[in-house]
């Protein structure tokens, strides 16, 4: 093993221990020494993991690999445990078995026999692990895929199709009182009538050209091609807007993490 990694690992271990000792001393009054040591360890460990993940920005390294693998293992088990207690124990057992409810000390609700369907399908799904019964798992998959498809078909046709068309049917002549009124009150302000009319027209035009861009079975040539090109320009303006809008929110996330390191862990700045 080369010297460099050993020195770095030793330095990190040393920093970890120093931080643990210092943080163990800063426990709130009234807590036992055991609690103080434990809290010191957890806080230091959290800071270590934070720095390990941030180190990824430099390059992949053993600390990042450690944090990443720990994160994957812990989080997978976390959801498993949570799902077991909140879904199976709290929701399923009280409806299918009095014995299991008593065993897990949850209140038995009543026998609801249709609740046997999901455990049966669940067991069919687990048949994948058996070399011969794997095909049975498809029944459960078919149930999930089928219900998903059926569930989404009319719902998305409503929300992503009909309601969107309905919202696009905008009146072009906003607050129209005749040409005389239009010219006498002409203004280029954002809330003015002229801008509103142009905006409504552009919304409808943008939607139509955007839809034209998504035509697959017609060549994008001539007027159709021009409309499609206008459509992609509108899409790009939108993507830029979405990008710009998100940037600031992401920076505040980083500020939050730096605050944890500088305030909660190192105590350099006061929260």
């Amino acid at each position: 093993m080369r010297k460099g990694p050993i020195i770095i690992t030793a330095a990190v271990a040393l920093f970890f221990v120093i931080s643990w000792i210092i943080k163990s001393g800063g426990a709130p009054e009234g807590s036992s020494s055991y609690d103080a040591i434990a809290e010191g360890f957890w806080l230091t460990f959290a800071a270590f993991l934070t720095l390990a993940i941030l180190s990824f920005l430099y390059k992949d390294n053993p600390f990042y690999k450690f944090a990443e693998h720990l994160y994957v293992g812990v989080s997978a088990a976390y959801w498993m445990s949570l799902g077991f207690w909140t879904t199976l124990v709290a929701n399923l057992f009280p409806r299918i078995s009095m014995t299991l409810s008593e065993w897990f000390q949850v209140e038995f609700i009543s026998y609801q026999y249709h609740f046997w369907v999901p455990p049966i399908l669940g067991v069919l799904l687990l048949m994948r692990l058996s070399p011969k019964g794997g095909w049975l798992s498809r029944w459960a998959l078919a149930f999930i895929v089928g219900t998903t498809a059926g569930l989404n078909l009319p719902r998305f046709l409503r929300s992503d199709f009909i309601e969107q068309i309905s919202s696009t049917m905008l009146p072009i002549l906003v607050n129209w009182q005749g040409f005389g009124d239009f010219f006498t009150n002409f203004s280029l302000s954002a809330s003015g009538q002229f801008v509103s009319i142009v905006s409504n027209f552009l919304v409808v035009l943008g939607v139509l050209c955007g839809i034209i861009y998504f035509f697959f079975s017609k060549e994008h040539k001539g007027a159709f091609g021009a409309a499609s090109r206008f459509g992609i320009w509108v899409l790009m303006v939108t993507f830029g807007a979405s990008f710009g809008y998100t940037v600031m929110g992401r920076i505040s996330l980083l500020v939050g993490r730096l605050t944890f390191l500088l305030d909660d862990w190192l105590g350099i700045i006061s929260g």
Binding site: K65, A67, E68, H69, Y71, V72, S75, A76, W79
Partner: peptide, 18 residues
């Protein structure tokens, strides 16, 4: 399967990429 936690999954996939 990696995990069904959003950023842990990202960590795992990033690891594979690198």
């Amino acid at each position: 399967f990696v995990t069904n936690q959003q950023f842990a999954y990202v960590g795992g996939v990033n690891g594979i990429m690198l």
